[in-house]
């Protein structure tokens, strides 16, 4: 069964488009990735089976790969361990299995650390307009979706509502200080490059991604979700053709269907979204599972998951 909303006996910190964030205590948060899906900035009414577990377990998998190289916020994404730590959650075990992660609470830097390995979306727009990315000049003659080597740190503000705005690295320095700015860039590039290489070998291009960082008394920590289809642009490598926009590995069936609905005049592009047909829900679920299986080399463990 897919889960769209959670209601836990903990203080709700926020409900994002996809994730519900709860406070466990002063030092810890519980992040729950639900099965909600958004497209064109609209959260759909239907939940996508397994999607939440894919996001959470993929994040956990990447962090395991990076163990020792980056300090991060994850305590556990294993439901047995989480229930042991927070016994109040025992009744909701089936709903949380796979989806929840117990994290160290951090003070969040108000910056989205975006890394772009391919020229797409707002970065392509900026480049087309003035030949720059994040305010820095790029070589001329690049086409849409071109690979960027080395990848580019292209930060944005964390907007509470609406779209995040691209900012310059100079701006980041002003907000967090030069030393931290350099460290955030270094860590972002390190994690992205690691991810890009692993995914590429398995048929997925991670075109760009967004990291968040925070700090506590031990220093800077990588927080939030990491290199998931929701925080990144995943492209199927076998369909990669520079010079045009690329299909999305995970959301293309959903987007294509929504586009058709819009063109047929059945949807005005705003919330609420149209009811999704079961075939589209199934196709989207399949894409998320496929992304997980390819990247981690293992099928998603759904034991005990409701």
């Amino acid at each position: 069964m897919a889960i769209a909303v959670t209601d836990l006996p903990l203080d709700l910190v926020r409900r994002g488009k996809v994730r519900d964030v709860y406070s466990v205590d002063g030092a810890r948060l519980l992040l729950v990735a639900t099965d909600r899906v958004s497209a064109f900035d609209v959260v759909m009414d239907e939940a996508i089976p397994y999607k939440g577990a894919v996001l959470t377990q993929m994040t956990a998998w990447w962090l395991a790969q990076l163990e020792g190289q980056v300090s991060h916020h994850l305590i556990s994404a294993d439901i047995d361990e989480i229930v042991r730590e927070v016994p109040a959650l025992a009744p909701q075990r089936a709903e949380l299995a796979g989806r929840a992660s117990l994290c160290r609470r951090a003070t969040v830097f108000p910056i989205e650390c975006v890394i772009r390995g391919y020229l797409s979306g707002s970065a392509w727009k900026e480049y087309r307009a003035g030949g720059t990315l994040a305010g820095e000049p790029l070589p001329s003659g690049l086409v849409e979706s071109a690979r960027l080597d080395p990848p580019v740190f292209s930060p944005a503000t964390k907007a509470e509502s609406g779209h995040d705005e691209n900012i310059t690295i100079e701006h980041v320095r002003e907000v967090v200080g030069a030393e931290t700015a350099a460290e955030l860039e270094r860590l972002s590039l390190l994690v992205y490059e690691r991810g890009r290489d692993i995914a590429a070998r398995r048929g997925i291009i991670i075109a760009d991604t967004k990291f968040e960082f925070g700090y506590d008394d031990t220093g800077i920590r990588l927080i939030d979700e990491i290199l998931t289809p929701d925080s990144s642009r995943f492209w199927p490598a076998d369909e990669y053709r520079p010079g045009r926009p690329q299909p999305s590995f995970d959301k293309q069936p959903l987007r294509d269907w929504l586009d058709a609905e819009r063109q047929a005049g059945r949807w005005n592009g705003e919330a609420p979204g149209p009811p999704l047909p079961p075939a589209i829900v199934a196709a989207t679920s399949h894409r998320y599972l496929d992304a997980f299986a390819r990247i981690t080399g293992e099928s998603l463990d759904t034991t005990g998951l409701a």
């Binding site: 397994y50 199934a282 679920s285 399949h286 599972l289 496929d290 299986a293 099928s299 759904t302 998951l305």
Partner: peptide, 19 residues
Amino acid sequence: ERLTVVVRRDGRELAVPIT
């Protein structure tokens, strides 16, 4: 068609996407 099959292996359940 893309289908998702749930399999039991070593006492665990896995969701396996098959094309």
